[in-house]
């Protein structure tokens, strides 16, 4: 896709998966570009995002939740919060949407090679992480990375996301997967409590050369990053991805800036080291 283009390319909704039902309404959309050339040439990195158009209504940014190793489709997950997300939730399989992108820097895949990785995702924050989790666990890539650990945090058992992936994540080589919910719940035998309270006891956090990727509600990111530093993880090895209101995706419309950085083009992925140098406005 041309970087100069402000118009989206047409994609078909192949499948809509209802992830959660009650308190949080999250659906995952599996889509593919209609045009074969665009489909073939569309490359993205985990951590990048796209602008999704609901024709005649509006556009909103969504991170890729599928891995770029999946060549036949793209997935993104949507929590219903506003106009565009509501309209997306009302779509049916076979409907058409527009997609612009990919935008942003993405997760640092290359410099993470050879490292131990911890992923800590909270709620819908697991969506962008899933793109990288599925990438590093893909058999073509698995050997490039050391031990991989996941701490997936949800409000309640009803809010769990990407359940279809759990089995293959758990069965992957040298991989530890933990799940936690906020409060005890009947029938739940896994961890309970906010994820920052579980890092020390549930994860092997002190393996040498460990890099942590975290995404979730701002308050969770704050507690996680504080806890990781207490545990001795360097700010340059703590990586998160930010959300902002966006219109253009290329650093022009103005609204997603943090100081002179634009989250859409200089981010959305930042290290804690970078965030500390930036004005505190996100």
């Amino acid at each position: 896709m041309e970087k100069t283009d402000m118009l989206p390319h047409k994609a078909e909704v192949l499948e809509i998966k209802q992830e959660t039902e009650t308190n949080l309404n999250i659906k995952t959309f599996k889509v593919k570009f209609i045009d074969n050339d665009i489909r073939k040439n569309f490359n993205f990195k985990p951590g990048q995002f796209m602008m999704v158009t609901v024709y005649g209504l509006g556009e909103a940014p969504f991170g890729f939740s599928s891995s770029p190793t999946e060549k036949d489709y793209i997935e993104f997950s949507v929590k219903e919060v506003g106009l565009v997300t509501e309209a997306l939730h009302n779509l049916k399989e076979g409907d058409k949407i527009g997609i612009r992108g990919p935008f942003g820097n993405g997760f640092p895949l290359d410099s993470t090679e050879g490292k131990n990785i911890i992923f800590i995702g909270g709620g819908i924050g697991l969506a962008p992480l899933r793109s990288m989790i599925n990438y590093v666990l893909d058999e073509k890539n698995r050997d490039k990375y050391q031990r991989i650990q996941l701490l997936n945090a949800f409000r309640s058992p009803e809010d769990t996301l990407f359940c279809d992936d759990y089995q293959w994540w758990e069965n992957s080589k040298d991989t530890l997967v933990k799940y936690t919910i906020d409060e005890p719940c009947e029938g739940w035998s896994k961890c309970v409590g906010y994820p920052h309270t579980l890092i020390a006891e549930e994860l092997d956090y002190n393996l040498p050369d460990t890099r942590v990727f975290t995404c979730g509600p701002p308050i969770m990111i704050k507690f996680i990053t504080e806890r990781l530093q207490e545990l001795g993880i360097e700010p340059s090895e703590i990586i998160t991805t930010l959300e902002m209101r966006m219109s253009c995706g290329v650093g022009k419309c103005g609204r997603c800036n943090i100081g002179h950085y634009y989250v859409c083009k200089d981010g959305p992925v930042f290290t804690l080291e970078q965030l500390r140098e930036m004005p505190d406005e996100y």
């Binding site: 402000m6 118009l7 024709y55 005649g56 509006g58 556009e59 219109s247 022009k252 419309c253 103005g254």
Partner: peptide, 24 residues
């Protein structure tokens, strides 16, 4: 000042995407 926003006018396939001034 060049901040802008996109808005859409018209229905579905017939709608026009506009670039409108916005303000920080």
């Amino acid at each position: 000042c060049y901040c802008f926003n996109f808005i859409w006018e018209g229905k579905d396939g017939e709608s026009t995407k506009y670039k409108n001034w916005d303000s920080c």
